[in-house]
Design a protein around this nucleic acid. Structure first.
Lengths: 356, 356
DNA sequence: TAAGGTTATGTTATCGGTAACATAAAAATA
DNA sequence: TATTTTTATGTTACCGATAACATAACCTTA
């Protein structure tokens, strides 16, 4: 034994306790070497039944719990993974978190949760923390294309990661994404079916891949349906919860032959806030304007259905993303990167229910 | 220098890199001792300006990031806190998570997220993990009174913790709770005002303090309003998302003079699922039966208001809980335990809107 | 300029584990 | 029984950082 391994002690009315029980304490009490204790903990087969039982009894007696920090220092693995999401108040992302947590725990990993509020800066600070914490891998919904520099830090340090919900221009990696083109087509097709000819898109920022793809697909879908593209009906904002009065006002103030009869929102928060803004202006949804969006704002399905949505399989995205990450960490994934694209489900509700 | 500190190396087409830059690498390159580097990192004032700049330049050049594990081994602090919640799909808890994450990050702590699904067993396993990870503290919404044993493990290991949303019989600790008696009174008073005389309570399990207190307060509130207590109108279930058809059916099948005209649900999920069950039976809410509950199921206020709720300040609960925890960790809290009780806000919506 | 006090830097041991090697004990084989 | 093989246990060094102590370099001040 190299050190003395003296333990700090506390004296209480009930006796004297050591604050932390180490492998040395167990070894001493069991009259074996620390290494033998280590072998018992790690279920090495090179241990006699007798010794194993003796050591296990002492472990039980002293209520010994191995110190992960110390172990990680040698093993280079922490069994920590991080989930970095861009908006912790959004049910879409918390559902992803649920899926990711389930898979992580099942596989023996603990989840460090980080929230970036869609800010590249916040994301950058968080990634620095993660590198310092030596997480085994990162499942991340990047804040936008500005995340490239942050992801490069992970690449440089060889920390495996999987992108979720969004990809980042210039970065090749494992991906779990929604099917933006198909989902957009479905939503536009539904609105067209409902008789709409002037459809506006309130999109997220073009720095986020989702927004770019949805815009692109939106334009194609309009053309496909023989509708013309009116630039005034395309507006960019951000994905987070906010007041959309100004934006919605701009749309509504258009001349009657330009004013949209339907608004497509690029995510659930934009959808919900669009409805709130419309109502504030005494505009009826869906009577005057129909609204549909990507992602369900409702954490619980079908209790108060109102908003027509294309629901992406958030739970599965989290679960699968974590699964791919763990495979990558443990070296069981194929060397080339994988891309999983999951379909969404169109849920038609009152907000687009228009009997024309 | 004690060891050789040889670094594992990787040879790539672009050259040879060391996988991990340590304090020794920095020291060598800067021609100082590791201790000097350590002092620079920790902003010790006992460093000459010249040396500091030199070392900082090397840190920058090598892109050195300190290893937290190694540091924790000596310092005994990890800057990790855990948030253990009992239902990660419930907006009430994810809002708590948001508050807790905000405060933790602001204070330089990272958040380990754990989900217990209201199961004492799952909670127990998670607590074991936490003890092994040596988190500095735990903010926990305990699964129920069965959590006592789990909390005792924390006490034994002197890991500071704060209970949130629920307390546990037999455990004294810092607490952040909603005001159950007052909230219950408000809800019952509202229903009575709406003309209801037969009010049912669909409660959570009595193993959870919330449920017990809500039942107690419910009974008192009925008496206070001169209403009689009908045991048939009191039903216990669990807090998580589920199908309540059977339970609701039992209530509805009561004779007309016993059948409740209003149902009070002990949390948001029960409230929502009660409504779903009623609708499946073609029973109109609020026309035939009014429904109100604790906690808002809506993550976004006022976009599609339907359910009357007593909204507890979930964000504040998370934020304050984390604040109290950090004060406890850092020793800036008073030695005696603190109890914070936060008021809720009654939000009256359609589900109890009955013009009698 | 020598003695004393500061300030800046280095050395050693340690945190709690484990890999790699060494050795002792038990079992198998000659 | 002596020798080899196998199995069980112990020793030493190390992971990457830092506390505590030791020493060297620089300033004062007499």
């Amino acid at each position: 034994m190299t050190g003395l391994h003296l333990q700090p002690q506390v004296i209480t009315p009930k006796g004297t306790f050591t604050l932390m029980v180490t492998i040395y304490d167990v070894a001493k009490k069991a009259n074996v070497s620390p290494m033998t204790v280590s072998r018992v903990i790690n279920r090495s087969p090179l241990i006699s039944e007798k010794t194993r039982l003796k050591v296990e009894a002492v472990i039980e007696e002293l209520d010994y719990i191995p110190n992960k920090q110390a172990r990680s220092l040698i093993s280079k693995e922490t069994k920590l993974v991080s989930l970095v999401i861009s908006d912790i108040s959004n049910p879409f992302f918390t559902t992803i978190a649920r899926g990711a947590e389930d898979k992580a725990m099942q596989s023996g990993y603990q989840l460090l949760l980080g929230n970036t509020d869609e800010q590249t800066m916040k994301e950058s600070r968080y990634i620095d923390l993660l590198l310092s914490s030596k997480v085994d891998g990162v499942l991340i919904a990047p804040a936008g294309d500005g995340s490239l520099a942050n992801l490069r830090k992970l690449v440089k340090r060889k920390v495996p990661f999987v992108l979720i919900d969004r990809h980042v221009d210039g970065m090749t990696s494992d991906l779990v994404l929604g099917d933006n083109p198909e989902t957009t087509r479905k939503l536009v097709a539904h609105l067209v079916e409902q008789g709409h000819r002037k459809i506006a898109l309130i999109n997220g920022p073009s720095s986020v891949s989702n927004a770019r793809e949805r815009k692109q697909a939106f334009q194609e879908a309009l053309l496909l349906n023989g509708l013309e593209l009116n630039p005034q009906l395309f507006i960019e904002t951000h994905f987070r919860q906010d007041n959309l009065s100004d934006i919605v006002n701009t749309l509504i103030r258009l001349t009657p032959d330009e004013r949209p009869t339907a608004i497509l929102a690029a995510n659930n928060f934009i959808g919900v806030n669009t409805i709130r803004a419309l109502r504030q202006m005494q505009i009826d949804v869906p009577g005057d304007v129909a609204v549909a969006c990507f992602d369900d704002p409702e954490p619980i399905p079908d209790y108060n259905p109102f908003l027509t949505v294309a629901a992406q399989p958030a739970y599965d995205m989290g679960y699968m993303g974590m699964q791919m990450l763990i495979e990558r960490i443990e070296g069981t994934a194929p060397p080339s990167t994988r891309k999983v694209v999951l379909p969404s489900e169109l849920i038609i509700r009152k907000s687009t229910d228009r009997k024309l």
